[in-house]
Amino acid sequence: MKRLNPLRQKATPYALAGPGVLFLFVFFAVPGLYLVQTSLQSGSYETGYQFDWAWSNFGAVADYAPHFLRSALYAGAATVLALLIAYPLMYWITRRGGRWKPLLMLCVVAPFFVTFLIRTLAWQTILQDNGVIVSALRATPLLGDGDSLLATPLAVICGLTYNYIALMALPLYATLDRLDGRLLEAAHDLYAKPMVAFARVTLPLSLPGVTAGCLLTFIPACGDYVNAALLGNPDTSMIGNVIQSKFLVVADYPVAAALSSVVMAGILVVVVVWIGGFGARKAMSA
């Protein structure tokens, strides 16, 4: 390759990256700082908010401990369910899909194409009291005559699982599809039973996809408030619902900002621990 003028070559990447980096800095990084700054303001909506290191806003965080807990629980349950559904499905598609693979993957992402709110509303229709599922379940001991599915924690978890399952499925597909079939043949040749081959070859090799999928599902599910609002009841509201109402309805910006900052900090801790723990495990097995 021809060598460029060294000065120009040095400047090129900065010129290329500059506009994008600047945009992300101004509209992603700086807003994060403003969020923290807002969380330390005091005052009221009528008189205006002033920045005065009002740490007391973070005291209010404790009042919303149940909401934080619910967010983590519901998002965790949805992540586990999504993994339990998506892993075998992706295994099936990558191993047995053959020429149907593209069509099957199109089915997997199809829910994404009817837009987030409309597919959540579809679950309202499916889980409603006059629906097929409730009627069928009421015929069994699982659901009493007066019991509903809609407006329950179960409905919220179900909605979260469905809404974010594609984020679990795609990384799993990427790792499982890349998996070298010859490795499984080798395991077979060495008399590994299918289950053993799966446990000792397929599963370890697909762990990066599992980690990525779990994070990509858990993070947005944690901050979600649409599912709790449309499929839950007031007792199932998550931390996202509190932030949304404090910012957009009550206009209590400082406390809302404090709650958002805590969510972000919590997510960062989860990411670091998750990836760190995975990295350590990988190092151990190597």
Binding site: Y34, C222, I243
Partner: peptide, 9 residues
């Protein structure tokens, strides 16, 4: 980053 946090920021 969860969307709520980006929106709020």
């Amino acid at each position: 980053t969860p969307e709520v946090v980006m929106g709020a920021s």
